[in-house]
Amino acid sequence: MVSQLVFCLKILYICSDFSQNNKCLNMNLLVCVSKTPETTAKISFNDNDTAFNSDGVQYIMNPYDEWYALVRAVELKEKLGAGKVTIINVGPAANDTVIRKGLAIGADEAVRINMDPISALNTGFQIAEYAKANNFDVIFTGKETIDYNGAEVGAMIAEFMDLPYISFGTKLELNGNTATISRDIEGGEEVLDIATPFVVSAAKGMAEQRIPNMRGIMMAKRKPLNVVEPAAFTDNVKVVNYTLPAAKSSVKLVDPENMDELVRLLHEEAKII
């Protein structure tokens, strides 16, 4: 009895101590993951060049989301020995394969907001609506998606939730309720402290890519993937058409022995020096 009581008190003590330092067992992390065409995919359009042609296109998880944001969240959880990593995607049921990969890498559960993402603002709004109701300490996004290259959604989530937003984090350490983050700025790096909760976008450097192992893949099948219907939102931006860039005229070869000629061409023909 007495020893049990002492044990309990000890746990309580450790926890209260922890809660100042490491939020005992409670870091609740959300990672936003998007889907993009595989990097070598051939890009073409249909419906009179108004829609992306997805015929035969393989999809992957956006590399920034997978390699950096998700892996760092999983690492933080592993380091704390506690907490939960949830991944969220705004997309149709076809995205479930990409989401399962996130679970195989180490997320505990997944949420899919069931709609075709139309505008970044809509996506940011939907994620913020979900996150508001679920008390996350840190919300991660990737630096940008490699298809539409917006770098917008993270900032939008932060604004809809009235939270701080740190873009392009290259390092993130948690110390209790405070994070120390390094971020890329033009021509350099900034190091800052910020208290949770906040939104951060992950850039190269924040973590190392992880390849899911067999056990992860098996476990992913049993992890929850909750489908949530979207909240009402009116879009105010849409793509009206796509064009392909003008084809390059063929390369002009210059004799490797005659670099004066290359310099002359750059000066007189290309007029860039």
Partner: peptide, 23 residues
């Protein structure tokens, strides 16, 4: 469309309920 611009464009759009296009 710089590193600070990229963290403001989306935020401002959300604040102003504005349509936005970055880059």
């Amino acid at each position: 469309h710089s590193s600070s611009g990229k963290s403001l464009t989306g935020r401002l759009a959300a604040r102003l309920n504005a349509g936005c296009v970055s880059g």
